[in-house]
């Protein structure tokens, strides 16, 4: 990836090669009209070229090198670092944790967001208040909400319970008392709760906009055809929501793969809640191994790119085919 991509972006500065004098003249004339536009975007092209794609290129070259200490020079070793990660026990475990987290978080937020959207769709009294409430967590950082969630999800057993466990004990729901995020293997499912809480309002808003984007005539037509209100949703509204759902999955998914703040705020750096982003942080700051840190970063980038790039291409094509 990347240095090439960056050049492709920057390459637009160069004028296309003229073949005939006539063309040359035409190009000049046209360039006079588009050149100022390019100049106006140029600062951003440079900034993004250097600090996004340039840095990605540099990171990649670091990942392909054996510079395993900050104070040494590295040489090219190909994909060695990428392969070695899979041979240790920590990396696969971290990936596994990220997968569990992603599955629960994306599934949970998608469902809850959709459900909230559905509830609020039909112009309810007090809708605005509910919507404001459900969306509010989105305005706050994971670091801040992590403070309260770490307290809520305190794993102390019944006799010393605090947080939610204490609430369960108080209402004689002792069977609900659990280890939360400190449980090996499935702890990451609990870790997804704060994330669901924080993002499902956003998904609700997306779906709400999606629901309301469905023309009322369509719904009415279905009703005339004898569809129940549920049937209208099932057969008319839902199929129209695929693009919204896709957007929601992309947004949640790309957040989820690189989840970091939330884990640090709740668990710090412990294997039980290890994910690639936290592993990278340990590698860079504690082991101080740039090549390995860059390798983990590359994997994160690849994981995100794998589904974001097709999505972007799809969106832009669709937009173009709809004729802007």
């Amino acid at each position: 990836m990347s240095p090439h991509v960056a050049q492709a972006g920057a390459g637009t500065e160069g004028r296309p090669r003229p073949r005939t004098p006539g063309r040359l003249h035409r190009m000049r004339v046209r360039a006079r009209t588009w050149l100022p536009g390019l100049l106006m975007v140029l600062p951003s092209i440079l900034l993004i070229g250097v600090f996004v794609y340039g840095m990605i290129g540099w990171n990649t070259s670091l990942a392909l090198s054996d510079q395993h200490a900050p104070v040494q020079d590295g040489s090219f070793v190909g994909l060695t670092n990428f392969a070695e990660l899979w041979q240790e026990s920590r990396w696969p475990a971290a990936v596994g944790n990220a997968v569990v987290f992603t599955a629960v978080f994306v599934g949970g937020a998608l469902f809850l967001g959709w459900f909230l959207g559905l509830m609020l769709d039909k112009g309810l009294r007090g809708e605005a208040a509910f919507r404001t409430l459900f969306l509010a967590p989105m305005a706050v950082s994971f670091i801040a909400t992590g403070v309260v969630w770490r307290w809520l999800m305190n794993p102390a057993p019944a006799e010393r319970a605090t947080g939610l466990n204490a609430l369960f004990v108080q209402f004689d729901l002792d069977f609900l008392v659990n280890d939360w995020w400190t449980a090996p293997n499935m702890g990451m499912a609990a870790m997804a709760l704060p994330a669901i809480w924080q993002l499902s309002g956003y998904i609700m808003a997306l779906f709400l906009a999606g629901f309301r984007g469905v023309p009322e005539e369509l719904r009415e037509a279905a009703r005339v055809d004898g569809c129940s209100e549920w049937g209208v949703y099932r057969h008319v509204v839902m199929p129209q929501l695929r693009p919204v759902t896709l957007s929601a999955v992309i947004i949640l998914g790309h957040m989820s793969l690189k989840v970091f703040d939330l884990i640090i705020a709740i668990a710090g750096q412990q294997i039980v809640a290890d994910v690639p982003a936290v592993y990278m942080w340990t590698t860079v700051f504690e082991v101080r191994d740039p090549a390995k840190g860059a390798t983990i970063a590359s994997y994160l980038l690849i994981a995100v790119a794998v589904f974001v790039i097709p999505y972007l291409v799809w969106t832009i094509r669709k937009e173009r085919s709809e004729g802007r």
């Binding site: 026990s89 920590r90 293997n185 412990q270 294997i271 039980v272 082991v287 101080r288």
Partner: peptide, 27 residues
């Protein structure tokens, strides 16, 4: 140094998850 120390830390962390002393010793 940092690397070895971190390897031990990782081994201990994994042990806290699986409780397997044999694996701990091997790592």
């Amino acid at each position: 140094g940092n690397r070895w120390k971190n390897d031990v830390d990782t081994a201990v962390g994994l042990y806290l998850g699986d409780g397997d002393l044999g694996t701990l010793q091997a790592s």
